[in-house]
């Protein structure tokens, strides 16, 4: 706020239009942020934590075997998919993507690709928390796949794929997913919340990049195959 005002006065030397609206908006921002933070403590954090604990208890409590936690994987996948498909920012980006790619990528297909990417990401992230395997290992492997894909993929899709990783996690989803990870890490024996609890958001941002580039390759391939099939029919 102060920054914008400073630049407006010092550098651009233009008066601010609608001063009253700006002040009213600032009041909205303050009240809104306060309410949001209270709601965060009362609802979003407990929600994620309680789900993690109840589902862990359902899946055999203090078991060390990662196979015992089936419902947690299901919950992680469903929540990753559902929150992403409904994300307004993603809908806007996918429509733009449809334009840039000249129809090679459809808006709906892209949204599905991103949502499936997030679902896989969160599920794998939960698996990592349960098994307690080190996070850098997964992320580095993921980066290598992404770099390899970026080299092979059509150039237009690359910046889009990277951006779609960033837009997937909305303000409401982030606290719930963070609390889910921390709740899991504190419930499962032998996991430290500080070492194992974080990282779910990182997975949710990395996997859409892969799935979007993968989707672009697959849809390109299907289109070419369809075209070739059509040509064969025309030939005789």
């Amino acid at each position: 706020m102060a920054v914008l005002l400073g630049f407006q006065f010092l550098v651009l030397r233009r008066p601010i239009p609608n001063m009253r609206r700006v002040i009213a908006g600032f009041a909205y921002v303050l009240v809104g942020l306060t309410l949001f933070l209270v709601g965060l403590q009362e609802a979003l954090f407990p929600l994620g934590k309680a789900m993690a604990q109840q589902l862990a208890a359902l899946s055999g409590g203090g078991s060390e075997n990662w196979l015992d936690y089936g419902w947690i994987y299901a919950f992680a996948a469903v929540i990753g998919f559902a929150t992403t498909v409904a994300e307004p920012a993603l809908i806007a980006v996918s429509l733009k993507a449809q334009d840039v790619s000249g129809g090679a990528v459809s808006a709906r297909g892209l949204r599905m690709a991103v949502a499936i990417g997030v679902a896989i990401g969160v599920t794998l992230g939960v698996f990592r928390i349960i098994t307690g395997t080190p996070l850098p290992f997964y992320i580095v492997a993921g980066y290598i796949v992404v770099v390899f894909q970026a080299v092979r993929c059509r150039k237009e899709i690359v910046p889009l794929a990277f951006d779609s990783g960033g837009v997937t996690t909305s303000t409401v989803t982030v606290p719930v997913v963070t609390a889910l990870g921390l709740g899991l890490a504190s419930t499962i024996p032998g996991r430290s919340p500080l070492l194992d609890g974080f990282g779910l958001i990182a997975f949710a941002s990395l996997f859409p990049i892969m799935s979007v580039m993968g989707y672009a390759v697959v849809s390109e391939w299907m289109r070419q195959r369809g075209r070739r099939g059509a040509k064969k029919e025309e030939a005789p």
Binding site: V29, V31, L40
Partner: peptide, 26 residues
């Protein structure tokens, strides 16, 4: 939790609305 969720919805709405009418155009 329900009360908190209402807080979250109202708070986030006011926050975004405030940004939209003041800071975003700026």
């Amino acid at each position: 939790v329900v009360v908190g969720l209402v807080f979250v919805v109202v708070g986030l709405s006011l926050f975004v609305q405030g940004l939209q009418i003041s800071l975003f155009p700026l």
